[in-house]
Structure formats: C-alpha cells, structure tokens
C-alpha cells in the first residue's frame, strides 16, 4: 500500500486517506524523501483529515519525515489533524514541537508560503 504523492509547482501535496500501519508509514517516509529529491520541492503539505488514529510509532515517523525534509530543504506542514488524534498525541506526550500545523489544506498552503517567505 503506497500513499500517492502529488506535485503542484514547487510543492508536494499528500493526502493520507488510509489508516497508517508501520510498513506503510516507512514506505511513505522513503517515497516522500525521494520525491523531494527528484522534484527539488521547496514545500510539502501532509493532510491528515481522514486519519482517525495515530500511534506513537506513526507519530515518530511523521516527526522524522518533517525533520528529514527540513534537512533536504523542504518545509513541511501538517494539516487537518482531528481532535481525537490531537488528544491522543498530547496524552502520549508527543508534542510534535517544531512542526508547523494548519487547519486544512488551504490554510496549510498559506502557511507554507509564509514559512518560505519568512
């Protein structure tokens, strides 16, 4: 199971529509990084609106993806994190501290623009 990664100009758009398991998440990590490398993208938006559950491993992978992409020069914004997901993450003590977030895809793109300009 692979998660589709769409390219829009300088950005990559990823909408996660399935419940992530460990293998999918790792595959996803590799796919994103190689796509950034291929396209030379400057920004990535990962939309989690349809994700209803995130465990600690997936959270770590997401955090890693953000850090790794930043290393490769692409800013990442997480969007559409659902309230139950946010509560679980906080309860587990996973704050995703340096990860920019936004309410939805639209605001995520705005946020990305802001991050890239600033």
């Amino acid at each position: 199971m692979r998660i589709p990664i769409l390219k829009l100009r300088d950005y990559l758009l990823i909408s996660v529509q399935v419940e992530l398991d460990d293998k999918t998440a790792l595959q996803f990590q590799e796919d994103v990084l190689s796509k950034i490398h291929e396209e030379g993208s400057r920004g990535v938006v990962i939309d989690l609106t349809s994700v209803e559950m995130i465990d600690s491993f997936i959270a770590k992978v997401l955090g890693d993806v953000v850090d790794m992409s930043n290393l490769m020069g692409a800013k990442v914004v997480l969007t559409g994190i659902q309230p139950p997901v946010a509560i679980t993450l906080i309860d587990m003590g996973i704050m995703l501290e340096d990860v920019p977030t936004a309410l939805d895809l639209e605001q995520g793109l705005d946020r990305l623009q802001l991050e890239l300009e600033g």
Binding site: L89, I90, T101, L103, G108
Partner: peptide, 12 residues
C-alpha cells in the same frame, strides 16, 4: 499547556 499544544496540532 496540554490544551494549547493540542490546539496547535489541529492547526490553530
């Protein structure tokens, strides 16, 4: 603090 962190996660 937890509440505000959670709010940040959902994007506000």
């Amino acid at each position: 603090i937890q509440a505000s962190e959670a709010v940040r996660l959902v994007g506000a």
